[in-house]
Write a protein that binds this DNA or RNA. Structure first.
Lengths: 198, 198
DNA sequence: CGGTGTCTTGGACGCTCGACCAACATAACG
DNA sequence: CGTTATGTTGGTCGAGCGTCCAAGACACCG
């Protein structure tokens, strides 16, 4: 194996771990499966990570950050009215789900893993803190650029939005009913519109 | 160990498995942990079940059925108007979540387990089919007794309701913000009311 | 050059897991 | 009673797991 800095190897292992998890699920992401995916000998693992948990922790934060960043990229269009902007954003989110269901699935699996792992509960909490924050940012930006204000407290509205998206995704992962899922998002978009006032 | 019919032992093992899962999570529910919880010797397990998967399958259907039954019990009050009925039902559901978070958590864990396990995808699909069906029943019964009709197709509305409940639960499992969670449910209830017409 | 720190590697450890079985105990029934 | 069916038990198997380590290879620097 070509010589490589431990830092770089960490990154490759994290990436390999995510690939394995997306393909086979979190529980199948063993140390051996991960180094296998990365094409490295087993011994490398504990030279780069003190434990499997340390890698998992890293994976959780990376995946959350990337989800949040991806979501933030979505709401950059400023030239639409409120209705169009909401619709576009919800559908853009949904495209992301249908395009890579595995990533979202892994997100949920990691949440439940963290909720059960002693000392990891905080990670699950932070995960949802970030999600809520990004939704709140979106709602705030949309309101400002449209010159309206929300008739419902922003944290509550953000949680509502987060809940619908999570719930629709979860249900779709099980039954793959894309048509109904989109209808629910459309319905939610219309609902949000009624919660804005000048 | 007292002599017991294999059928009866199966039931006790299923119940013990559910207890272990609620307490420690699905992944910790090993054959040894389960028979330990049931106070039986290890050998019993494969006398009653051909495999661990067979037990898991049984647990999934039992837990789904019990959730559905519990949900059905909630919407029996016929004497309220539509708004009161919706509010009562949503809050009753929420009481169930806060009262036994572990059970709901296990529900999600089993869904993700089933989605990853070859040959179990159908079980996850059926799980959500049942959930959607029960929500649809509720919406239909509420509409009939209130003399209204829904302006949104029933399957879509049921999916919407299911999504909000799932999403709020999931988020609450992570951050335990009860106040905001209730606010989201209140908001959803009000929204549903606007989707009814005479 | 030699020495020191960094990286590489294959193998081994102790443990837990699902599964299996032979030997035994108890019931059911002619 | 004897035979057959059913249930009980402790031990054991092989596989896979996270973790660790000694020995070597390589790079850098005085």
């Amino acid at each position: 194996m070509a010589r490589m800095a431990a830092k770089d190897r960490r990154e490759e292992l994290i990436a390999a771990a995510i690939r394995v998890m997306v393909r086979d699920g979190v529980t199948k992401a063993t140390t051996r499966a991960i180094v296998g995916e990365a094409g490295m000998p087993l011994g490398v693992f504990h030279y780069c990570f003190s434990s499997r948990e340390e890698l998992l922790q890293e994976v959780i934060t990376r995946l959350t950050d990337s989800s949040v960043a991806k979501a933030r990229d979505v709401f950059t269009a400023e030239d639409d009215d409120l209705g169009a902007r909401i619709t576009k954003t919800l559908l853009a989110f949904w495209e992301g789900v249908e395009l890579s269901p595995g990533e979202h699935q892994v997100g949920y699996e990691l949440t439940h893993y963290a909720l059960r792992q002693a000392g990891f509960e905080e990670l699950a909490r932070r995960q949802y803190d970030h999600y809520l924050e990004v939704h709140q940012e979106f709602l705030l930006a949309a309101a400002e650029s449209a010159g309206i204000r929300w008739t419902v407290p922003l944290p509550v509205l953000a949680r509502y939005l987060n809940a619908v998206l999570d719930g629709v995704t979860l249900c779709w992962l099980a039954d793959r009913n894309s048509e109904h899922s989109r209808e629910v998002l459309r319905l939610t978009g219309e609902h949000l519109l009624t919660l804005a006032e000048r």
